[in-house]
Design a protein around this nucleic acid. Sequence first.
DNA 1: TTTTTTTACGCAATCGTTCCCGAAAACATC
DNA 2: GATGTTTTCGGGAACGATTGCGTAAAAAAA
Lengths: 352, 352
Amino acid sequence: MKFEAVTIKDIAKALGLSTSTVSRALRDSYEISPETKKLVLEYAEKINYSPNPIALSLKERRSRSIGVIVCEIANSFFSQVINGIESIAYNNGYNVIIAQSRESFDRELMNLQYLTSRSVDGLIISVSTETNDFSNFKQLHEKGLPIVFFDRIVAEINTHKVIADNYKGAYDATTHLIKNGYKRIAILANAEVLSITKERLAGYKAALKDNHIAANESLIKYCHHGGMIFSEVEEAMSSLLKMKQRPDAIFASADKLTTGCLRILKSRAIDVPNEIALTGFSNTDLTELLNPPLTIIKQPAFEMGEVATQLLLQLIESKRPVTEFETRVLTTELLIRDSTKKKKPKTKEAIH
Amino acid sequence: MKFEAVTIKDIAKALGLSTSTVSRALRDSYEISPETKKLVLEYAEKINYSPNPIALSLKERRSRSIGVIVCEIANSFFSQVINGIESIAYNNGYNVIIAQSRESFDRELMNLQYLTSRSVDGLIISVSTETNDFSNFKQLHEKGLPIVFFDRIVAEINTHKVIADNYKGAYDATTHLIKNGYKRIAILANAEVLSITKERLAGYKAALKDNHIAANESLIKYCHHGGMIFSEVEEAMSSLLKMKQRPDAIFASADKLTTGCLRILKSRAIDVPNEIALTGFSNTDLTELLNPPLTIIKQPAFEMGEVATQLLLQLIESKRPVTEFETRVLTTELLIRDSTKKKKPKTKEAIH
DNA sequence: TTTTTTTACGCAATCGTTCCCGAAAACATC
DNA sequence: GATGTTTTCGGGAACGATTGCGTAAAAAAA
């Protein structure tokens, strides 16, 4: 089954003109007489002509589309980023092609190949947790393909980057926990290689240090797929809960880790925050409706998408190779709710 | 800034062959000698050649990509459907281009034009709440573009469709409420024109009738953007809550309506389920962590995406025009949790 | 009237690929 | 040795659109 579109040739044949004349008439060229233009325009309108962008892409060697690779769109943070990306892209006449890596290096590579061979004009990427070989990105970047990294960036490649202030976000959240009386604060971290993990971990450690609490390596648990695989979170949590001295608070450093952690605490009937407090990075708009309402660090996701796209379009539309790159750091927001309520003195048993 | 790819011409020039020979060698044609093939293949590998799909699309008049239009990807139901779509599409060598209408007819039309002009081979669509003019879909369909509708389908166009059993889902949920002692059951409905609204409303009404409860039109409230605009939900809810005889249960017929409703009830400190019970369609995986855990009707979203894509690929790859179309109806699942707990007798005040 | 300029359009190349032809070797057959 | 067959490859058109260049006719200038 085929879907036949109207081409410039159909117009030319119907009107007894050449394709060049029709093309020029449609583009309102000065060398076409007003009468001919009118004729062509009216006929084109009548038969509902629209130029074939595939042919245009081939000719102009650009597709006016940008590729986006994220690990998962069923994740509030990323879907909000995508909304930001789309808003800027559409306003500039670009289409957005979205692909998911699902935290798999192979799928990321596959998408990368598809998108670049598909001739996207540029790429916006947050790398998967599995990715520790960046040679593919590097190659493309060196060949001149504009790339902007966001969220999970790669240090080795010198290009525009957009991130949230992960250090400060983690620092603030940890400080908030400490201020509210929590002392044994565990962290549920994403894959160790990720930039966001390093930054958030650093913020967490700095907050402990500034408050004279010794960092305890056994309170740091990594989940290599960022909470996408639930059993990983379960494992990390059960090893935390098995400790002789349980943590009294948990700081989860990714959206799915935060909600995954809550799921586990509830399934074990552990009272949050009275037994264990919980906070974490999250962008879902349901956190305040949870039981208990969650204290979260929220990233400016939509804005990150916007900024990343603006930077990418700058690269794409620049006449000469760009060599000066910047890293934009946007501020996070700490929303304080019940899951990190001030710790009650131990003697008095909590009544919920 | 431009990103130059290797073409078949480069290979031909370097090896002193013609482009046709190279092309045939790469496609393993019988008319090329093994030595030449080896030569070409090795050189192509060496310089990292990959065919330009834009040129292929132009030539073959197909792009091996399918377009998807949903109202919002930041919605669990739709992102799950998209995951289903992608899983089938990728396995069959198709790429997926996702577009969002954000419940706007104009954006939907824009996307429609973009995707079709971009020569997608087929389209998978759930229409926006604003859409009541289907002439654009109709035109494309008549021109021979394969289209599959899912979720919010359009009756007037005869093509493959995939839906959940909305009637039964609504019937079961309403019956469940009635069984648990609720009698004044309000419904928060999506835009009246949508197929899902009609089906769910019918299921709701049938359940009332079968249990000898008179339907009350003032308990039916429409939200024309399906909960995407929060103020609409607020309005609907406040008019329900202002009634002399308040409803004792609410059945929300869309994901955002369900969570939006809970948000409003909580902000007004209305006890769920003791003052008002709540259930609704939802596919977010956080509903069991909410306060209270929500009884929901869950659609087989991933499966819907899979089925829709299988049907679309059938259409695309069919040699002759298809005239027999089917509508697949998948079953929903009722997950019973605390938000619809058995109603307590009025005399005894609830202690939470 | 002749020459020059302008107007208005067509021809053909181009983008990267495939594929229908044709054609030159190499080989087999009588 | 002439003819037929097979193998192997190249030329060139096509897909849809744009665009530099060429040119006929009309208009303007001489």
